[in-house]
Amino acid sequence: MNNSSLKASVIISIYQDVEALNAILYALEQQTEKAFEVIIAEDGQSESVHDYLNNHSFSFLIHHISQEDRGFRKTKAVNKAVAAACNDYLMFLDGDCLPHSRYVEEHLRQRELGRVCVGRRVHLGPSLSKWMRSKPLLLKLLENRLAYLLLSLPLFIDHTKNYEIGFRSRFLHKRQTKKYLNIVGCNWSVAKVDMLKINGYNESLPGVGGEDDDLGWRFNGKNIHEKSVKFIVPVYHLHHIERRADVSTNLRIIEENKTKQLYYCENGVDQYLK
């Protein structure tokens, strides 16, 4: 597939987890809309990731962008991927979230210039997450409404959270479209031209956490507002231990930038544009 026929660029931010990446790429192989490229935004230079990608073939175009592992620098990795994207519409996934088979199709259906499409995730429990990592084809069970309903008790026992997000429903979606939904990095999309209006992620945020909220208020400052795709574009989050550090530092910097109305960050995507 050549670049001119692509409808979207799907950017996946990852860190070392090859097993999860394999499951995500399997889920992307099942997409109902096939005209997209995948950009792996790796915050590190893992040999296992490099070897995996070199030894597997995919039905979609795939690009791998990596960088030296010097602590949490997801914002830099994703900005590099944004700059490298061939398409003018961007979709974002985290390296621990499996997309529904209609993920690309529905994000494209809902896209609007000047809007950010924001979805949500089902937080799978530890036992099912372990199964999904090794057997991602089980995703078909979660996408089947009857099977998903029958699994409600086992999922509850396994400590699955946000279970309701897994029910794709136009009715449920329409009932909450007026509610504000903030950006979460695991499931959102935006036109590249709108991303460039705020210069992407702010790489001057040193810690983990708050970087997606930072995008939100800067988008709003440029009159680019969130559009909920909750209940029509679910993703399934694989359980893992939370990794957060220096969030207070990020929040302090964000508040200072809000006061100064710095919607276009100085340390962003533009440094990677040719």
Rank of each mutant, 00 (worst) to 15 (best):
L90V: 07
V193H: 09
L108Q: 04
D194I: 05
N144E: 09
L139N: 04
V116K: 09
A83H: 01
A83R: 06
K174H: 09
K197N: 08
N87P: 00
S169C: 12
V104S: 01
P126D: 11
L142T: 05
L98N: 03
I183G: 01
R109V: 03
P99A: 14
V193P: 07
S134A: 13
L128M: 15
V184A: 14
V104I: 09
L181A: 12
L93T: 05
L124Q: 01
S152R: 13
G114P: 07
F156T: 09
K174G: 06
P136F: 10
K135T: 05
G185M: 09
A84F: 14
L93P: 04
R109S: 14
Y163F: 15
L137M: 14
R175Y: 03
Y201A: 10
R120F: 12
G119N: 00
L146Q: 11
A85Q: 07
R111H: 06
N202C: 12
S169F: 08
D96V: 05
P136E: 10
L141Q: 10
Q176P: 06
R120T: 05
P154H: 06
L137F: 14
R170L: 15
S101L: 10
H107L: 13
S152V: 06
D96K: 07
G200N: 04
I198K: 01
Y180I: 11
L150S: 10
R109L: 15
G95A: 13
D88M: 09
P154S: 11
D88V: 03
R133A: 12
A85N: 02
A81E: 07
L150R: 09
D194E: 09
Y201W: 11
E106I: 08
V116C: 13
L93S: 03
H159T: 05
S127G: 09
L149P: 04
L155G: 01
V184K: 11
V104E: 02
G185V: 05
K130C: 12
N144F: 08
K80L: 15
R102T: 03
L128S: 07
L124E: 05
Y180G: 08
N144T: 08
L153I: 04
L150W: 00
L153W: 00
F171Q: 12
A84N: 11
H123I: 10
A84K: 14
G119S: 11
R168I: 09
P99T: 04
L153H: 00
P126C: 12
S189D: 03
